[in-house]
Amino acid sequence: MRLIPLAATLTLLAGVASAQPQCGGSFADFRAAMQDAAIARGVAPDTARAFFDGTRQDDATLAADRKQGVFTLPFTEFARRLISADRVTRGRANAERYADTFAAIERDYGVSRGVLLAFWAFETDYGAFQGDFNTVNSLMTLAHDCRRPELFRPQVFAALELFARGALDPDTTTGAWAGEIGMVQMLPQDIIENGVDADGNGTVDLKTSPRDALSSGGKMLQHLGWRAGEPWLEEVDVPGSMDWSLANIDTTLSPSEWAALGVTPRDGGWDADLPASLVLPQGRNGPAFIAYPNFNVFFEWNQSFTYVLTAAYFATRLEGAPVFDAGNPPPPLSGAQMRDLQQKLAARGHDVGEVDGILGAGTRSAVRAEQQRLGLPADAWPTTELLNAL
């Protein structure tokens, strides 16, 4: 895939994205409206018709969007599911096999090899399972759905741009249910902006060329704000008591300030003298990490806190970090208990978002606030004690 000038591409996408066909309702009417919007902004009518005519609503995509139960798991269980000995072994083998590619990525984009290996592993098991959803049908389905249309409509038109270049086939291109394509699962607009022909064969092939896929992922992370040469996560030990409300991704202190509070790196030394946040995914008695500024870039790739922390930790593991200390945290609430807790928090005026049983950022913040109000350790880990107190 040869990239056309980015400025021209973004101009087209911005214009098309401004059109707002109605979500919901008749899918046929929505498809026609999307096609008309593309033509009105300069896409050749034959090209638009060839792209949109065969698209259909995909119920399996909607089912996958509604069912993401794995994100209800606590960090320790989630990490143990995703990080196997086999994945560690294959990750390190791939680091050696593509050492020249990773060296070029680190030189050109500043992204450490462990980070890309972690995404490669989690997204597609190093390319083995890239998804069998029809990409265009999935994007059109999610753009038509009223839950997040503003997120997916620009991706439909980016896919149209790739089709116009001959780089995507609406009938045969497949990927993940949310429209991501290739070994590190990139959305069409990300491919347009960050696709790299690293193997020099004249095309950007994210499905069969690890060199292209990894380099494109590295460029995208740089585009998202990755800071070259800086760490992202470091495991630490925490004292038995401190102001647990400071364990907040939005609170940053210097390593010397954390040290003064009794926080110590598990390996004995701080990775960098940078602003850092204390992350306690399962409260004060569970695993503990210091997150540096690069950690926030992971959220640009995926919004799940548990996924992001697991990917960030696995990246350090692939570069030599030990297995994390799981500690002995109180057991997690059941799904029903978590939804009950979210309802109680919402009733007290907290913004927890959707009542879905997932311990997201809004729920963690609300839990911390209620723990402080009730005089409990404010470590943002919901317990039956807190639920009963509410």
Rank of each mutant, 00 (worst) to 15 (best):
I4A: 14
I4L: 15
L6H: 10
L10V: 14
L10T: 13
T11G: 12
L12I: 02
L13P: 08
G15F: 00
V16P: 00
V16T: 12
S18I: 02
P21T: 11
Q22I: 12
C23R: 06
A28I: 09
D29I: 06
F30Y: 15
F30M: 12
R31I: 01
G42Y: 04
A48L: 02
A50E: 11
G54W: 06
D58G: 09
D58M: 01
L73F: 09
P74M: 06
F75G: 01
I83M: 09
A85M: 07
T89Y: 02
A95C: 06
D100Q: 13
G114N: 05
V115L: 05
E123S: 08
A128K: 14
V136E: 01
N137S: 10
R148N: 09
P154M: 10
A164H: 03
A178E: 05
I181S: 03
L187G: 06
N194W: 05
G195Q: 08
D197G: 05
A198Y: 01
D199Y: 04
K207P: 00
T208Y: 00
T208F: 00
K219A: 15
W232D: 00
E234F: 01
E235R: 03
D237H: 13
V238K: 05
D243L: 12
A247W: 04
D250S: 14
T251N: 13
S254P: 04
E257D: 15
E257C: 04
W258M: 09
G262E: 11
G262A: 07
R266S: 07
W270N: 07
D271T: 01
S277V: 10
S277F: 08
L278Q: 00
L278M: 06
R284Q: 15
G286R: 00
F289S: 02
A291Y: 03
F295T: 00
F295S: 00
E300V: 00
W301Y: 15
N302W: 07
T306W: 05
F314L: 13
E319T: 08
P322W: 06
D325N: 13
G327K: 04
P329Q: 06
P331Y: 04
L333Q: 05
A336N: 09
R339T: 15
A346T: 15
A347N: 11
R348Y: 10
D351T: 10
G353Y: 08
G357Y: 01
L359H: 09
G362N: 11
S365G: 15
A366T: 11
A369P: 04
A369D: 15
L374A: 14
G375D: 09
P377L: 08
D379A: 06
T383C: 05
T383Y: 07
E385D: 15
L387D: 13
